Simulated scan of single mutants.
Amino acid sequence: MVCDCLLMKEERARGLMGCGEDCLNRMLMIECGSRCPLGEHCSNKRFQKKQYMKLTPFKTEKKGWGLMALESIPG
């Protein structure tokens, strides 16, 4: 799905990123694809850019395996 997010030339020149909280794809929990109008200025491509949090699996006492964050996850 292609979003309709826009950034002005001046905003791009300042290094601002688009596709924030008001991005239709982000609201639907979909990453923007290669046809996003913002291209490299899109902030909704975390999996594609491999921007993962540091995590580690761990064995729980009664419920099998879990996943623990090794760094603070912003809310």
Rank of each mutant, 00 (worst) to 15 (best):
C36K: 01
K63Y: 11
C3L: 02
M68R: 07
E21Y: 04
S72H: 12
G18N: 10
T60F: 04
C5M: 11
F58C: 13
E31L: 01
T56L: 10
L16E: 14
C5Y: 11
L70Q: 07
G39Y: 00
D22E: 15
A69W: 03
A69P: 06
E10S: 15
E10G: 03
G64Y: 09
R12F: 08
G39N: 03
L24T: 10
A69M: 10
C3N: 07
C36M: 01
M1V: 07
C3P: 04
D4V: 00
I30N: 06
C23Q: 12
C42P: 03
Q48V: 07
L7A: 11
G20Q: 13
Q48D: 08
E61M: 08
R46K: 10
S34Q: 02
E71D: 14
V2D: 14
S72Y: 12
E21C: 00
L67S: 08
L7N: 05
G18M: 03
E21T: 08
C23Y: 06
G75T: 12
E31N: 06
F47S: 05
C32R: 10
S43I: 06
K54W: 00
N44T: 04
L38W: 07
M53Q: 03
W65M: 15
C42A: 09
R26K: 14
E61K: 14
C32E: 04
G66T: 03
F58K: 06
K45M: 13
D22H: 07
L55K: 08
E10Q: 13
K50Q: 13
I73V: 15
L67C: 12
E21F: 02
M8A: 14
L16I: 08
K45C: 05
C36I: 02
D22V: 07
L70D: 05
G20F: 04
E40C: 00
M8V: 03
S43E: 05
E10W: 02
T56G: 07
Y52A: 15
K59Y: 00
A13W: 01
T60I: 04
Y52W: 11
K50L: 07
K9E: 15
R14P: 00
E11A: 14
G75S: 13
C3S: 05
Q48T: 08
F47A: 11
L16F: 09
K62D: 08
E40R: 08
W65R: 14
K59I: 11
K9Y: 02
K50Y: 05
K49T: 05
E21L: 11
F47N: 08
R26V: 03
E40I: 07
R12L: 15
R12Y: 05
E71Y: 03
K9H: 08
L16H: 09
F47Y: 07
M1W: 00
D4K: 11
